[in-house]
């Protein structure tokens, strides 16, 4: 092989453990997660948004009216991950889902451990499965279980 034909390839990892300050709204939600609770926020039109947005998506007003919610909800939409990627939250087939907490109007995205695709459908009820250790992270919700 001639020198000029040599191809130099090497794996590398680009990364950093970022230190994020949360601000009051995101912090309130993550604090609630650490305490194994769900908190939403009321938008300008009174609709309850989970996770709480800092600003209303339509009026851009600052939001601050928090609402406590149960850790149960309903699947609005879902997608079945047959082959989870290395970084995905679950290492077996699972569903991403838009989940609307009971008492909320805007769904959030997380995953559902349903075992099989056939167990998934819009309208199904789910409940949070909390992580063994909760630290104040979106990953404190390990996933949702069919309920």
């Amino acid at each position: 092989m001639s020198a000029s034909a040599e191809v130099l390839s090497q794996a590398f990892t680009l990364g950093y453990t970022y230190t994020r300050s949360t601000g009051p709204v995101v912090g309130r939600f993550l604090t609630a997660l650490r305490d194994r609770k769900i908190v939403g926020i009321k938008g300008s039109d009174g609709k309850v948004i989970v996770p709480p947005m800092e600003w209303d998506p339509v009026t851009a007003e600052a939001l601050s009216d928090f609402v406590d919610l149960p850790d149960t909800g309903v699947v609005k939409s879902w997608a079945w991950v047959k082959h989870p990627r290395g970084k995905h939250p679950l290492d077996k087939p699972f569903a991403w889902a838009q989940i609307q907490f009971d008492g909320a109007d805007i769904p959030m995205i997380h995953c559902v451990d349903a075992g099989d695709e056939s167990a998934m459908k819009a309208g199904m009820r789910v409940k949070v499965r909390w992580a063994e250790e909760t630290i104040g992270s979106i990953n404190d919700i390990a996933c949702f279980d069919p309920a």
């Binding site: 191809v7 130099l8 390839s9 090497q10 794996a11 590398f12 990892t13 680009l14 990364g15 950093y16 453990t17 970022y18 230190t19 994020r20 300050s21 949360t22 912090g27 309130r28 993550l30 604090t31 650490r34 104040g136 992270s137």
Partner: peptide, 18 residues
Amino acid sequence: EPITGIEVPVYLDYNFTA
């Protein structure tokens, strides 16, 4: 204490070719 800061690991794997 309320959560005010979090650590978020963002590590992405690449296969770089010069």
